[in-house]
Structure formats: C-alpha cells, structure tokens
C-alpha cells in the first residue's frame, strides 16, 4: 500500500443519494451513486462535506460501509450535538446530493489477498458503530468467495442497537461466526454474552494467537483500549492488531 502516497489530490465528488436504510433508531446507512470514485478497500474511510446556504462548510470522516466494487455507502450514528450527523441521519433523502472525497487510510484494511486457500483467519472486534468498516470486510470476504475462518465479536449495549443485525445473522454459514455481547440490557432468555470485552472473554472467543489471525478492532476509544490490550494479554502480537478509534466527538 506504500504506493498510495503517490496518488494525486483527493478531489471532492458530488454524489446522489440512491438509498437510505434505518439500521437502528439512531443509525442510518446512506448509499451513494458516485461518478469518478477511484475505488476503495474494505476498512477505508471518506470525508463528507456539508455546505450551508451562507457558504459555511463542515466536514467529517466516516468509515465506508460497503465492499470494494459495491456502490459507496456510509453508516452514520446520530450524535445529538453533532454538526454533521443529524443532517445525514434525519434530513438527507434519496435524490439529494452529497459531497464526498476519498478513499482515505490504507492501514486499517483487509484486502483479502491470500484469503482464498489456507489464508490467515480473520478476527474482527467491534464496539457499537465500530462495526461499520468490519462489515465492509465481511461483505468483501463474501464477494470474493473467501473461505477464511472468520470470527466477529460485536459488543453492543442492547440487541436493538446492533447495527446490520439481519445481515450479520445471515453470515452464520461459510465459516463466519458472529458472537454478540450485550453490555447494558439483554432480551429475556438471552443465552449469549453480556460482559464488556476483556481478556477473559477474548480468550474464550478469539482465534488462538498461534493461528496468526489478521485482527481488526474498531470502536470508541475506551472500548478499543480494552479490546486491544486484552488481545495483547492473550498473546496476540501488538503489531498484528490493527485498531481504529473514534472519540466521543465522533469521527
């Protein structure tokens, strides 16, 4: 990926909203029709720019929710005091225009290279809306027909706050295991995990470190700290654990 340093300036593109999907009461996926998009890899992000009538602009970065080759999509969590996200989750309609540029970042990516036969297993750990770039990886895995053994450990506060739930549950084949932990409230009869992610839980559900899994952790900062430190504690080499954090102010 060193070659990405050689690319030209990232130019702003005006996309048209093709589709919006309400994922949870506060989370929405926006699919764009975008001409001139240079393509992306699973795990990268893009910048969104909103321009007010008086010319004031606000930009934010969002993880790309779609696999390479699919229409560009972002999944946005509404932040009540946010300057950008409430417009995206509440106001934007199909047919509206939206300015974006990207893709950005080249480290937190899973290309699927070598994932056809005997590739490294994939270990994905998500907290809340940190699922978004990992979902792009899962979709990419499916699209390229990869069979690498894959586990997703997804921490959410409650079942209704699980993003992409139907899609994730449909991955229960083809060697993908999805494990939820619901940290705040659990439905009656919940037999799954309910604790916060720590070394003990990770030791139970993660691939053994000796399997050399490609590992991606994404979520709010305290979550990523706990999950990444937990993985290191159970023997994952720190250099093999790729993380993406976002602060309380969103990103």
């Amino acid at each position: 990926m060193a070659g990405t340093a050689l690319r030209g300036r990232l130019t702003w593109l005006t996309g048209t909203v093709r589709d919006v999907t309400q994922e949870t009461p506060t989370v929405r996926t926006i699919v764009l029709d975008l001409t001139g998009w240079p393509g992306h890899e699973a795990g990268q992000h893009l910048d969104v720019r909103l321009t007010a009538e008086d010319g004031y602009t606000a930009e934010r970065s969002y993880s790309i929710a779609s696999a390479p080759g699919e229409p560009v999509a972002i999944t946005v969590q509404r932040l009540d005091d946010g300057e950008v996200s409430p417009y995206l989750t509440d106001e934007l309609r199909p047919g509206d225009e939206l300015e974006v540029r990207g893709p950005i970042g080249g480290y937190f990516v899973w290309t699927g290279a070598g994932a056809e036969v005997g590739g490294r297993p994939l270990m994905l750990v998500a907290g809340g809306s940190g699922i978004v770039p990992l979902r792009a990886m899962l979709r990419h895995r499916e699209r390229i027909g990869s069979k690498v053994p894959t586990r997703l450990l997804y921490s959410a506060r409650s079942l209704p706050e699980v993003i992409y739930r139907a899609e994730l549950d449909s991955y229960g084949r083809d060697g993908v295991q999805v494990i939820y932990t619901l940290t705040r409230s659990q439905p009656p009869g919940w037999a799954g995990y309910s604790g916060r992610i720590d070394a003990r839980l990770l030791a139970e559900v993660s691939w053994p470190a000796g399997d050399d899994p490609a590992t991606f952790v994404c979520g709010p900062t305290p979550f990523v700290e706990a999950a990444a430190n937990g993985l290191v504690a159970i023997g994952y080499p720190a250099t093999q654990v790729k993380t993406e954090r976002f602060g309380a102010t969103g990103r």
Binding site: T221, E225, K242, R245, G247, A248, T249, R251
Partner: peptide, 12 residues
C-alpha cells in the same frame, strides 16, 4: 472539543 480523543493504529 473539550475532550481529548485518541487515535492510534494499534494497541497502546
């Protein structure tokens, strides 16, 4: 922001 967000590529 009044927070002090953290961004890093790997474990601390």
């Amino acid at each position: 922001t009044s927070d002090f967000p953290v961004l890093s590529a790997g474990p601390t």
